[in-house]
Design a protein around this nucleic acid. Structure first.
Lengths: 345, 345
DNA sequence: ACTATTTTTGGGAGCGCTCCTAATTTACCC
DNA sequence: GGGTAAATTAGGAGCGCTCCCAAAAATAGT
């Protein structure tokens, strides 16, 4: 069975190639009669125009890419990424774009992946998860290739780049302020990787809250984590030696690890250690003592990223946009306060 | 800056379009001299051939798709999928294929996604996660469109389809047999969705082990779960009323929920309830009492799926293959036996 | 009825490659 | 050096669309 082409449909419908093309692209200036006839034939033959030919002729692929650089693939243990992906996929479907997926697994792969991502006639635009120094490579490549790009998370050099992020500094400032308000004095933190913007910013929020309330800033209470559960566990073991009365964990996954360490040390949450996490993963509410945390709108961020990118593709690139999504403090059990939620600016 | 084409490179290198094409496609019968010259120019100009044009001319896109149908997007809470995706992405990179991602979010989306997936000039082949009745639609569409396909997990109608799966019946048979061997008498199970092949098969393995050892098959000890943590929790609450002394959970995530229910009921694991899960997620070993479970090679399955598909694409489709990956019983704390691991056929 | 518009239609050119064939160059051998 | 075979090269045709422009058909206006 030979592949059908526009021309075949045209013959069957007794019109020209151009008319069929107009019908398919839903353009006007086609007579009712012709349109109806063509649509029938398309139905009957189950015809779908060849994607490559369309892309070549129109210079548009209706496909966008999501790049998860090396720095990210390590944290693939964090449900944050599946959720982000879900938002992105959903928005792509909604807008009739196709999503292609680049998961960089090793330094070697980067070399030949980046040009492949940016080559012409393939993607209309690109989303890059970033926030580590290593991510500047891919961002630079995309800028050089002049392909529309939206970055997820604030990259290190962000001036000429459109990105979607939350206000990490302010969010964690609020998380820690809450712990102080409740009366805790020795508040520790498990940070994200300190070479990442998320890690830095959430630590900065912690620092500001501490300093602003005239609590002593004790470096022994600050331990770097890696956004994994075991990472949180080991970090918390170190911290426990310092006799803290509260903890701000820069992610829920690390908070889970920390909780485990606290339990293993036979201490109680929140009585001995009050705890606030970050992310509001579904699993944060799957326990008898539920986690107080900062909720960030992961799925919505994904949607926003796609919408922003599509806007850039279809309406041209204006000046770089910095889009900040709202967060919320969800007060549950682990901080010891009464349950409620607080919108953060 | 105009886009470079093959012809431009040819001019710059003082050869013809064809020669440049040969160099790019790494074909022989190009003189050393010409090849060197062309490669230099390609380097200097940072040229990459247009993907759409290549696809149109060669009828190959070097792109494959992963379809997660509606039935799957519900379980996106299970780390199984991120891991599978990781294996798939890794194998794609290795083989220089690009991965596109179709996450079906709603019944409505299906309608216009399936033809889009199968349209010509777009994908060389497709991977479909399946195992529910609802997945027959997409499988049927792909077969009709005659596009190479590998299914992940055994679909309901599997005769004419190539798929990669594990032996679910035998694996859970072994899990339950282990509990029996240890001396447990009232063994309960939380199943997967019973309308899925995984759900059915793992239950069947449970049944066989019970019956074969002449234990009574008590329907009250069988509760359907949904592969989520809260699902496992509620299922276990029901089961606890039946005073079991062991549980086989059809997934680790549900096992986690079950453990939480057991703790909330002030019972001990493994003393009061012995527990075996299924999957061996990393998190299964992140607790003070670590989970005994069936390890399935998720990442490797992903790799195998891709390799099988590429083979079909490049070497044509032979008869349908049914590829079964090995599993392993990982004995840790929750069953009460001595830690070790047992390869399953 | 006969222009003057407007709406609809058809076909050429072109998107940037690959593949094929034929022409050219080079290598080889007596 | 001349003839043959082998290696290399060039360019045409074609992949299946979109876009543009000119031609044809329908409609309007007087």
């Amino acid at each position: 069975m030979k592949n059908l082409t526009l021309e075949d449909i045209a013959d069957l419908a007794g019109v020209s190639r151009s008319t069929v093309s107009r019908v398919i692209n839903n353009q006007d200036s086609v007579s009712q009669k012709a349109r109806k006839r063509v649509m029938e034939v398309i139905q009957d033959t189950n015809f779908h125009p060849n994607a490559a030919a369309r892309t070549l002729a129109s210079q548009r692929s209706w496909t966008i890419g999501l790049v998860l650089p090396l720095s990210v693939s390590i944290f693939f243990t964090d449900p944050y990424y599946p959720n982000l992906t879900r938002g992105i996929a959903q928005a792509c479907n909604q807008n009739n774009y196709t999503l292609t997926f680049f998961l960089v697994g090793s330094k070697d792969e980067e070399k030949n992946m980046y040009p492949r991502i940016a080559r012409k006639g393939f993607l209309d635009g690109v989303m890059v998860q970033a926030g580590h120094h290593g991510d500047q490579d891919i961002i630079g490549t995309m800028i050089d290739m002049n392909i529309p790009m939206v970055v997820v998370g604030r990259p290190f050099r962000s001036d000429n780049v459109t990105y979607v992020d939350i206000d990490n500094v302010n969010s964690s400032y609020n998380a820690v302020s809450h712990l102080i308000r409740i009366g805790r004095k020795r508040i520790a933190t498990i940070t994200g990787p300190i070479k990442s913007t998320v890690g830095m910013d959430r630590l900065e929020g912690y620092r500001r809250a501490i300093v602003e309330r005239n609590l002593p800033y004790d470096p022994n209470l600050v331990v770097e984590g890696d956004f994994t559960e075991p990472g949180g566990y080991y970090a918390m073991q170190k911290i426990l030696a310092q006799k803290p009365d509260a903890l701000f964990a820069a992610s829920d996954v690390m908070a889970m690890g920390a909780m485990r360490a606290v339990k293993d040390a036979n201490l109680r949450i929140p009585e001995d250690i009050a705890l606030v996490g970050f992310d509001d993963l579904p699993m944060s509410s799957y326990s008898s003592v539920q986690l107080t945390t900062i909720r960030q709108p992961v799925v919505q961020s994904g949607i926003r990223v796609v919408e922003t990118l599509i806007d850039m593709i279809e309406n041209g690139i204006e000046k770089p946009l910095h889009i900040i999504m709202d967060t919320e403090l969800i007060i549950r059990d682990t901080c010891g306060a009464n349950r409620r939620s607080v919108n953060l600016k």
